[in-house]
Every structure is written in C-alpha cells, then in structure tokens.
Write a protein that binds this DNA or RNA. Structure first.
Lengths: 161, 161
DNA sequence: ATCGTTGCAAACGGTTTGCAATTCG
DNA sequence: CGAATTGCAAACCGTTTGCAACGAT
C-alpha cells in the first residue's frame, strides 16, 4: 500500500490547510451554516492524512473525541458539495476521499493485486480533454479517471488478486 | 437523457450479440458453469437495451419471466468477471452497466444537470495513457474515465442540478 | 444421481434520517 | 432566545448469502 500525497512546492502543508479551511468556511457561511468544532476536526483529519481515508477510518480516528458517524457522513457530503473533497471508488469496498482544490489535478492508478493507489499527473491529457469537450459543447466541471491494473511490484510477481 | 449506443460499422447488432454470448458461454464452460436460460435472458436484456441499465431496471424487465433479483446480481458479477460488462458510476444512485468487449473503448461525459450520459472516444488519450504507464511499470488492465459537467443543452440554459 | 442453478427471504454493510438534547451566535 | 448542530438509534437501500427446491446432464 504505497499511496502518495504531496503538496505543491511553494505551498507548505499548513498554508494549504488554512486555505482549504477558509474555502470551507466561506462555503458554509454562504449557506447559512457554521464551521463547528466537529466539522473542523473532520477536515483536519482529512488534511493531516497522508493517504486516502474512507469514512470508517475518519470515524474511528475521531470517535475518541466523541464524534459520531452521522456527523462524519454529513460533513463529508458538505465537503463534496463545496468541491473540496473528491470521492475515489477503487475496485471494491467503501469509497475513499481526497481533499483536492488547490492541488494539481491527478488521476489514479489502482493496483488490482495489492490495492495500492498511485497518483499520476497528466497535463497533456487534461488539455486534450478540454479541447475535445469544448468542440462538442460539453462544459467540464471535474473528472474521475481511474486506471486499474498491476503496479510495478505486482506485475513482476505472480499476479494474484 | 440522451444516451448513445452504437455498433461498429461492419458488425450489426445481431452478430455482435452472438459474439458476446459466445464469449460468455466460453467463459462459463471454462469455469464449470452453465449458460442457463436466466443468464441468457439477462445478457440479452443488456444487449438489447440502447442505454446503460442498472440492476433494478434489468430485474424489473425480467421479473415477469420469473427471474429473481439474486440471479440478476449473480449474473452481473459473472459478466464482469468475464470482462464483458463494465460498471459506470455516475454522480449518484446505483451503478449502471454496459456491455463492452468488442466495442471500441470510450469514456463517459456525465451531465450533472440533466443526468444524460454521452460517450466519447479518445484513441489519442489511450495512447498517452499507455505510454505513461509503461514508463513507470504499471500494467493497465482497464480504466474508468468519467467527466462531469454540463452538456451542451444544459450549459446553455440555467444550469440547475 | 449429481452438481450447478434458482428464487426466496433473511442477513449484511454502508449511508441516511428522525429526534431530543445541545451548542452557538 | 432561536436556529443550526450533534450523537444516537432506527430506518433505509442496494447487495450478498443460506437454503431447499429445481434442472440439466
């Protein structure tokens, strides 16, 4: 399970976290909602993680602080609505989540043998996408691109799922 | 809801259906399983449809013939295992399915306003993908590429979800 | 006769919702 | 005070499974 997570050169993790929190807060305000302590903690948990968490993992790590499952789900939904969080499907099991926004867009390479998720950036591919969609009048909001196969390690060995 | 579905020039729908059925049958045989009437009907239902069906739609259309939900799920799983069926996630709700195999690969443009799904082919994009993955030693088995945004019709009008 | 297959109903697991208590502004 | 928020438990919904009856070789 090697899952990468990185932050653009000029922005360190804390600045990044602040920025995201600000965007979230703004979103909430605009909708007459509040940036409460549980919501903040859930966002922090996602930001601190160096891999893609699923709902259960967030819940387990925050339960000691008295945060319930429902709140985790509700907050995840808000973060998705505010376009700060994206859902990654994987091959099976519950979806995992990833804070995006400021990070350069990347796609996912999911290994169907060991389950690892690598990230990959494709500026070239993004360009082609936009050009083609522009031509047929489709206005892109976001996309999800998951490639399934065998990672380097697993491709070398026996390839069992 | 305009969902395209087409068959390559030289192959008409019936030939195509036969080919798929043959592949399925072969897969079943190889695994000591049988191409039974319910399985055949479920495959036919998917082949006949001119849009992406979900499990419930298949079940509803076959229920009059006495086919149960469990069989639909079980058969879908087999078709996925035999690499004849792929799962499309959409923005919400249950996954939809699409028979692929012989058809040229294509990605999906999902409209977040009206829910329509357009298909788009990107040979260029596929090439880039393979080249890049080859470079880092990732062996592609299949991929899922869904682009979300506003279709031509909805981009023009008021853009409500 | 044997072994896969079927439909049913119950079980399951992730997600959502109703609600009374609580917190925040 | 009033409105949003919370945790809990129950409800929900799509999916899976156990099982006894069935079907095909």
């Amino acid at each position: 399970m090697s899952e990468l997570s990185y932050f653009p050169g000029s922005t360190n993790r804390e600045d990044y976290a602040k920025k995201i929190a600000a965007v979230f807060s703004e979103y909430l305000e605009k909708n007459g909602l509040r940036l409460t302590s549980p919501r903040r903690k859930i966002l922090d948990c996602l930001l601190k993680a160096d891999r893609h968490l699923n709902q259960e993992e967030i819940y387990q790590s925050l339960r000691p602080q008295g945060i319930g499952r429902a709140t985790v789900f509700r907050t995840i939904k808000m973060l998705e609505d505010s376009n700060l969080l994206s859902r990654i499907a994987g091959i099976s099991g519950p979806p995992r989540f990833e804070v995006h926004s400021e990070r350069p867009h990347h796609d996912h390479l999911v290994c169907i043998s060991c389950g690892s998720i690598q990230e990959i950036q494709w500026p070239e591919l993004e360009r082609i996408q936009e050009k083609a969609c522009g031509k047929i009048g489709f206005e892109i909001k976001w996309h999800r691109h998951e490639i399934f196969g065998f990672c380097k390690k697993c491709a070398g060995s026996s390839k069992q799922a």
